[in-house]
Design a binder for these strands. Structure first.
Length: 326
DNA sequence: CATCAGGGCCCTG
DNA sequence: CAGGGCCCTGAT
């Protein structure tokens, strides 16, 4: 790429105290997600880029607290030559929403941490974990679009092609990471060009979405309380169908009370974990999940899922390997 | 080599 | 409301 990289030397350190209990690792590190070149994490540190209100930022998030007295130290790197007065308080608000830092999960913990056979050992390990995302709705929609009808391997390839062509490479804290691009940028790119970076028919989807997002105000969508109303709105976006909308509802908007669709590979995983069998009928699974976890079902599923993928990092789980197509 | 399915969705009939 | 088409790639 001709576009040169941008080095961010100045930073401001801000402190956020999430609502306890809070799991740093559980909230920031998601082993079930595929890797992207805008994020990097280690034991106690997490780095990501951020495109926020047309400005590029680099974030280093440090766990400087404990589960019951949580604290995050966030170094916000910025481009002091152009961005002389960054709005740090808006950045704090945005991170708080995206990572769901202040939600109260005490009811969830109370109901399930002792009595629930499947959940209680998982909550034991991951108490305070949030369903979170580093992304805006637009960015998340791009991710889910390149996930559709393909293997993880090719998804990774498509994301890298997108970041290489439309992202901005920034350097901060010794890290070299790409930022996401704006939807405006994609509106100026032809569908043919998108096809040339091997997005296949998704080129059309991404192009239409970029245009549609000119009219979408994410902050207004965040104000919608009713999950069903929000779901209906989201389904109006081209390329968002029943599978994708579930991920968006829980990961972007932190709505946990809707489960209407189960994809084939997830069906196999739930069958194993809940009924200890190869394949349970979809409706039976949906009913069982609703009966067990009610209003909290998507959060419960997330806990179980991430726990499973953490285990997978330590030891191969045979029945699971077959379901993950790399 | 050729064929095919893969963490869906849109569109048509 | 069921089912074909969609792009590319690695597996067979």
């Amino acid at each position: 790429m001709i576009d040169s990289s941008l080095e961010l030397l100045d930073y401001q350190e801000i402190t956020i105290k999430p609502l306890p209990p809070f799991s740093f690792t559980g909230t920031f590190c998601k082993p079930s997600h595929f890797p992207t070149p805008d994020i990097n994490y280690g034991e106690k540190h997490y780095w990501q880029t951020l495109l926020f209100k047309d400005e590029f930022y680099g974030l280093k998030i440090i766990n400087s607290g404990t589960i019951y007295d949580p604290q995050l130290s966030v170094k916000v790197y910025f481009d002091s030559s152009k961005n002389t007065n960054p709005d740090f308080s808006s950045i704090i608000d945005e991170l708080s929403f995206r990572y769901d830092l202040f939600s109260d999960l005490s009811e969830f913990n109370e109901i399930f941490s002792d009595a629930d056979q499947i959940l209680s050992p998982v909550i034991d390990r991951w108490i305070g974990m949030r369903i979170s995302t580093p992304y805006s709705l637009y960015e998340f929609t791009v991710v889910t679009t390149v996930l559709q009808n393909t293997t993880v391997h090719r998804t990774v390839q498509m994301m890298n092609n997108l970041f290489n062509n439309y992202g901005k490479k920034i350097i901060f804290d010794g890290k070299e990471l790409f930022t996401f691009w704006s939807n405006e940028k994609i509106t100026t790119v032809s569908e043919e060009e998108l096809r040339s970076i091997k997005l296949g028919y998704r080129a059309k989807t991404l192009h239409r979405q970029a245009n549609e997002f000119q009219e979408i105000n994410e902050n207004n969508l965040r104000k919608i309380v009713d999950s069903n109303i929000l779901m209906t709105k989201l389904l109006e976006i081209y390329g968002i169908g029943p599978a994708t909308v579930q991920y968006i509802l829980s990961e972007v908007f932190h709505k946990y009370d809707l489960l209407t669709h189960i994809s084939p590979w997830e069906q196999k995983i739930y069958s194993q974990l809940i009924h200890n069998e190869k394949l349970t009928e979809k409706n039976k699974l949906i009913n069982e999940i609703d009966k067990r976890w009610g209003e909290w079902k998507m959060l419960a599923i997330h806990y179980i899922f991430e726990d499973l993928f953490w285990k997978r990092k330590e030891e191969k789980i045979e029945w699971l390997e077959d379901l993950i197509n790399y």
